[in-house]
Design a binder for these strands. Structure first.
Lengths: 102, 102
DNA sequence: TGCGGGTATGTCAGGACTGACATATGTTGC
DNA sequence: GCAACATATGTCAGTCCTGACATACCCGCA
């Protein structure tokens, strides 16, 4: 979790669209980060809309509360795979996911 | 590579839209498979449009020809992460990716 | 103030993914 | 037929991701 502070800094005070490139990130890496961010926010909004706690969602996913927290924090250790799988298990469709990252 | 035959079977004779659920896959798993399929096809079409060989693309990605082949075959051992990263490095945007999976 | 439910952060063993290599299977032009 | 090139398939050691646990932080409430 060594990049946590940077990430918090990054997501803290900035508009979503402009996030994630004032460090030495290539365009591709920046796009990846923004996608991770977009998906994590979408995940949280779907979860809260369903009035589930992170623990509840963890049970659905057969994962753990801490991992859900990391997903929603767009922690660098969570993959896009996991984020997408989680959204699908929350009832989102590929279309919803597409809308989130577009 | 133990599920190779199933995958080949799966992708071989069927229309794209209907693929990937005539085995015991949950809706979520099926959606995941279809996304992998859609991305792999998109990857191939972007690569060929640019007239690159799998080897060329591998060099861009700092990967190997065999992995590129597996990506385009939607091999179960390639992650959505890798597919997306590859598309981005081919010049695709998140919007393009969204369009592919929608 | 202290409690209780919810969320965040750090860590780690084990499993999944990756790049690389070897090799097989096309495919094209001679 | 056979090179030369492109793509496919199998395998494996090293790396990264995952779930789980521990623990800290944050409220709202009594």
């Amino acid at each position: 979790m060594k990049t946590t502070k940077r990430d918090k800094l990054k997501t803290a005070g900035w508009a979503v669209g402009s996030a994630a490139d004032f460090l030495g990130l290539s365009a591709e890496e920046a796009a990846l980060v923004e996608m991770r961010l977009a998906l994590s926010q979408t995940l949280r909004s779907w979860r809260t809309k369903k009035r589930l706690t992170q623990g509840d969602l963890a049970k659905v996913l057969r994962s753990s509360q801490s991992r859900v927290a990391k997903m929603e924090a767009a922690d660098p250790t969570v993959s896009l795979d996991l984020l997408m799988r989680s959204l699908l298990y929350l009832g989102a469709t590929p279309k919803d996911i597409a809308k989130a990252i577009a």
